[in-house]
């Protein structure tokens, strides 16, 4: 019954098991991958251009990119000063206001308007810090979109964007 030598049967046993394991793993690939964003969803997520001319000072507009709301805020002098007068080290997610805008474009703040807590959309010009207030669980962001108080762990993220001219940005 038992043999010190490996037999034909041992080989068949291990070979069958190996092929079944590799095959099983290979089948998982399409089953899992099909749930990731499909080609049409990715195509619809291409870059968009936003004209800044109609946005008045103090106004925040909302545009959609990849199904996410993007806040474009034309900040007032007061709002910029408020964002820059804070001691960065005291913030929950320390980041300077300068690092959150493009050089020389201090008045334009572009944010992904999704609360970093659980994904609700914060409301502009509300809360104790003049910035954004999330109605779901009470997170408060300042005029630079940085988290100041509440359960959210991080600042409002910045989308990838560039100025294509002085009055136009390209998001994505």
């Amino acid at each position: 019954m038992s043999s010190a030598h490996s037999t034909r049967r041992d080989f068949l046993y291990i070979a069958t098991g190996t092929v079944a394991a590799v095959g099983g793993a290979a089948v998982l690939v399409p089953l899992i991958a099909q749930m990731n964003p499909d080609a049409s969803t990715i195509a619809a997520g291409a870059a968009i251009e936003v004209d800044l001319t109609p946005i008045a000072e103090g106004q925040v507009i909302k545009v959609f990119w990849r199904g996410k709301p993007i806040f474009v805020s034309h900040r007032t002098k007061k709002e910029i000063d408020e964002a820059r007068s804070v001691n960065v080290a005291t913030l929950p997610d320390p980041q300077s206001d300068q690092a959150r805008v493009k050089p020389g474009k201090d008045q334009w703040l572009v944010l992904i308007g999704i609360c970093t807590h659980l994904g609700c959309i914060p409301i502009a010009h509300q809360g104790d810090y003049d910035g954004f207030f999330c109605p779901c669980h009470g997170s408060q962001y300042d005029t630079s979109g940085r988290i100041r108080r509440g359960p959210a762990p991080a600042n409002l993220p910045l989308p990838p964007y560039d100025f294509v001219s002085d009055s136009k940005i390209k998001i994505g």
């Binding site: 990731n36 964003p37 199904g67």
Partner: peptide, 16 residues
């Protein structure tokens, strides 16, 4: 993103 099947909750999410 994998759960949503997109960059936000949308039609792929509803269907699954």
């Amino acid at each position: 993103t994998w759960l949503w099947g997109g960059f936000s909750v949308g039609n792929p999410t509803l269907q699954r």
